[in-house]
Amino acid sequence: MSTFNYPLHFQFKIGTIANDFIAKDESGQTICYVREKIFAWRDQVKIYSDESKANLLYELISDKLIDFQQTFTIKDHSGRIVGKVRRKTLRSLWRSTFRLINNEDNHDHTIQEKNPWTKFMDGLFGEIPLIGILSGYFFNPAYLLSNNDGRVLFEIKKEPSFFGRRFTVHKLTSDNVDEERFVISLMLMVLIERSNG
């Protein structure tokens, strides 16, 4: 993946069994098609150039069969390790947190939920009969990708909708950063977190 034309838009498909979405840039050009493999022993995500699935770009494979301190390894089509993403399961009971690990196996960036109260209120409001379906219009989580110094580089927000199917990614820095690894990590995070809000 090269430099992108921000903001990026992740649009989940409605009415399919698979957990998948199309990523597009600001001009509406398709960047890739992201699909989580279902009915697999280990969680696995594949990223293709488009919906035809003819050209595999990346593969993300979980290191564990169960979701506890789960780590996904990101590999490109040639088998090169791009990095890893580790989900902090225990902490995510309150605030969703994902640690980004570089190809030298060092934790250097973090994706964290901006406001954990949004998830709490969405869960509470969502339990109210009939009106609960409107929670997706009022409680929309946002996530920040920051470095170890706390500087925020990217933000991803869920857009208001009934089904929580649209997310927008904003790059908040003009610096030359590892966009390939960061955008893929945000794609993985949103697959896991899209049901929040």
Score class of each variant (00 low, 15 high):
25 D>Q: 03
179 E>K: 14
65 L>K: 01
21 F>V: 04
62 S>Q: 03
95 R>M: 03
143 Y>Q: 06
143 Y>W: 11
121 M>I: 12
87 R>C: 00
148 N>L: 14
186 L>P: 10
72 F>P: 00
37 K>F: 01
150 G>A: 11
151 R>S: 14
109 H>N: 08
101 I>A: 04
93 L>T: 07
50 D>F: 05
46 K>M: 08
172 L>E: 14
179 E>G: 13
71 T>S: 06
157 K>P: 07
181 R>E: 06
36 E>H: 01
122 D>M: 07
59 E>T: 08
109 H>K: 13
57 L>C: 03
30 T>Y: 01
17 I>A: 06
158 K>R: 15
28 G>A: 08
51 E>P: 01
27 S>G: 04
175 D>E: 15
26 E>R: 07
108 D>A: 05
124 L>C: 10
41 W>L: 07
163 F>I: 14
105 D>H: 11
173 T>Y: 15
125 F>H: 07
121 M>H: 09
71 T>Y: 00
29 Q>F: 05
69 Q>G: 12
194 R>E: 05
162 F>V: 12
36 E>D: 02
166 R>K: 15
82 V>C: 04
51 E>N: 06
141 P>N: 15
79 G>M: 14
107 H>G: 07
69 Q>H: 13
138 F>R: 04
12 F>P: 00
56 L>T: 06
137 Y>C: 03
11 Q>E: 05
86 R>I: 02
78 S>W: 04
29 Q>R: 09
50 D>Y: 03
113 E>W: 09
132 G>W: 01
160 P>Y: 14
173 T>I: 15
197 G>E: 06
60 L>H: 02
167 F>T: 11
35 R>L: 07
14 I>Y: 02
29 Q>L: 10
